[in-house]
Amino acid sequence: MSTSTLKYSAETSNALLKEVMDRSGQNLMSCYQCRRCAAGCPVGDESGVTPDRLVRMVLLGEKDNALNNLLIWKCLACYTCGTRCPNNIQTARINETLKQMAKEAHIEPNIPRVASFHSSFVKSISHFGRSNELEFMALYEIENYKKGGLTAVKEDIKSTSKLGRSMLKKKRMHFKLDRTKGKSEIKSLFKKAADKRGAKGQP
């Protein structure tokens, strides 16, 4: 994946830039490519894209590249990039927006398991109001199975059950279902979120 500085056209780049700025609340236009974010990014090396490159893709209107790269899925939301940015751009927020836009555009996530992890976690909150580790892990593996079949979950089940065994041994596994009584409130917040997404699609 490469970005070209030669292809800039205000007319074609503006739609993407405006949507990302509105949704993330970040002023991408103040980026002067100092790369302090890149220096601090813990996953930049492995992603092949650093936060400054991502900002540049959006500025150039390279929608395909911006919605389809490893950084938006490897990002750990550690907020180092944004904390160090001299122009107060929080790239992690831009990543969150781009992830949501990629989902809405039905683009297959570059790391499907990351997408499954976060959507399963949120789904588990919608069920009981609290996250229960066993239920959440089950939802996550079901999601992985749906996306990648048995091979996608085989390795996981091996490593997860190893962790599960030591958690049992150390009395850190929790079997009681923790739940929130105010379920109707949680439900209505989730409904409101769905209404707001409207045509934009499911989380």
Binding site: A77, Q100, H118, F121, G182, L189, A193
Partner: peptide, 25 residues
Amino acid sequence: EDWNCCGATSASKTDDFLAIALAAR
């Protein structure tokens, strides 16, 4: 009493409204 999950990093990665609303309750 009767608190709910804050949504953690996952909510902010999937839905901007829930990321604020869950902790708001």
